[in-house]
């Protein structure tokens, strides 16, 4: 990677960090409601992964999705506006924090039923294989999703059909508040062995390590060598969501992981060490990111709520005659003319 691209990775990670801190602030100010799952600590995973993929590869992730959307190219404005529930958000305020999407970047969304998106990701990979598009699907999930049926069903199917897919576990070691040792019977990497799937354990606090692992897995998929499983070991600095007081985790454990902070490490061990940037450059990046996020907040705050008359839009892509909504007809139904009947019983 050249200097420009390395600095871009750094900037993306800082953007995610600042975005999340400001989102937490906006949540405290009640500008954001519902669930808000923040990505602090895990920035290297999304940024490293996306940097390894082609622009038309498919990305499917879980509800901790702000970092992924930003890394995949959604604007801070659109993401913040979505958190605010505004018409200018990534889904016009329909999905909220957990359901960001940006199909033009082939970012197929954040999914909030644990494990629910794994079969969908396998399906995207099946379509890529059947339609011979050459696309690879990256499916990210939390460690807590590796015990549910859809995980095993999707892993088995992907191996069976040799699908071009990367199953990536963002292993932050907690399923909400339940530690890995309490929720899983075997080490994560062994879960791939049951399906004879190529697997690697990856340092998720190292953006270059994530990037290189995803490059290898994507290369395998493109060569027709099938699915891969990446156990990306990482840590989230904040609670499961803003609703989590985070009392169950050891403060010393959190502090230990913060010593391996992916942003600080990348700055000192790569950018500064190789003299690619000066401390002033890093400071300028921080400032420009803060400005970008401040602008996103202003944009979101000024944006209108979605118009009420859009409420029923897109329940169906293809509306039909006599569409019935909410259990009662909007108007009395009209009789369809010229509809085929074989007249056998009439």
């Amino acid at each position: 990677m050249d200097k420009e691209n390395l600095v871009a990775l750094y900037r993306q990670m800082v953007l995610i960090r600042v975005f999340e801190d400001r989102a937490a602030e906006m949540y405290a100010k009640a500008k954001i409601a519902g669930f808000l799952h923040l990505y602090n600590g895990q920035e290297a995973v999304a940024v490293g992964s996306v940097s390894a993929l082609h622009p038309d590869d498919d990305v499917v992730v879980n509800y901790r999705d702000h970092g992924w959307a930003l890394a995949r190219g959604s604007s801070a404005r659109a993401v913040m506006a979505e958190l605010f529930g505004r018409a200018t958000g990534t889904t016009g305020g329909r999905g909220g924090s957990m359901h960001l999407v940006d199909v033009k970047n082939r970012f197929w969304g954040g999914y909030a039923i644990v494990g629910g998106h794994l079969p969908l990701a396998a399906g995207l990979a099946a379509a890529a294989q059947y339609l011979k598009t050459g696309r690879v699907t990256l499916c990210s999930m939390g460690d807590g999703s590796t015990n549910i049926g859809t995980f095993h069903a999707a892993m088995n199917w992907a191996k069976l059909w040799n699908l071009p897919i990367i199953f990536m576990v963002e292993n932050n070691q907690y399923a909400m508040g339940t530690h890995y040792d309490v929720h899983s019977a075997v080490p994560m990497i062994q879960k791939a062995a049951g399906y004879d799937m190529y697997a690697e354990q990856v340092d998720g606090m190292d953006v270059m390590a994530v990037r290189e692992a995803v490059c290898r897995a994507a290369e395998r998929a493109r060569k027709g060598e099938g699915p891969s499983f990446l156990d990306v070991v990482t840590y989230r600095y904040r609670g499961h969501s803003m609703a989590d007081p985070d009392v169950q985790r050891d403060k010393a454990e959190i502090a230990r992981w913060k010593e391996r902070d992916p942003i600080t490490r990348f700055a000192t061990e790569v950018l500064l060490k190789r003299n690619l940037v000066t401390p002033k450059d890093l400071n300028d990046i921080q400032k420009s990111v803060e400005q970008e996020v401040e602008d996103a907040i202003e944009f979101a705050d000024k944006s209108p709520e979605p118009a009420l008359d859009t409420l029923y839009d897109y329940i169906y892509q293809q509306p039909v005659r006599n569409m019935q909504i909410a259990g009662s007809l909007i108007r009395p139904p009209t009789i369809a003319k010229d509809i085929p009947t074989n007249g056998k019983h009439a």
């Binding site: 197929w108 079969p119 399906g123 379509a127 049926g149 859809t150 999707a154």
Partner: peptide, 23 residues
């Protein structure tokens, strides 16, 4: 033929439909 895993039969179908097929 697919595995006996209805959640995957439907889920893989959804994903394939998203990806341009009509399963």
């Amino acid at each position: 033929d697919t595995p006996i895993a209805e959640e995957a039969i439907i889920g893989v179908g959804i994903g394939a439909a998203m990806g341009g097929m009509r399963p």
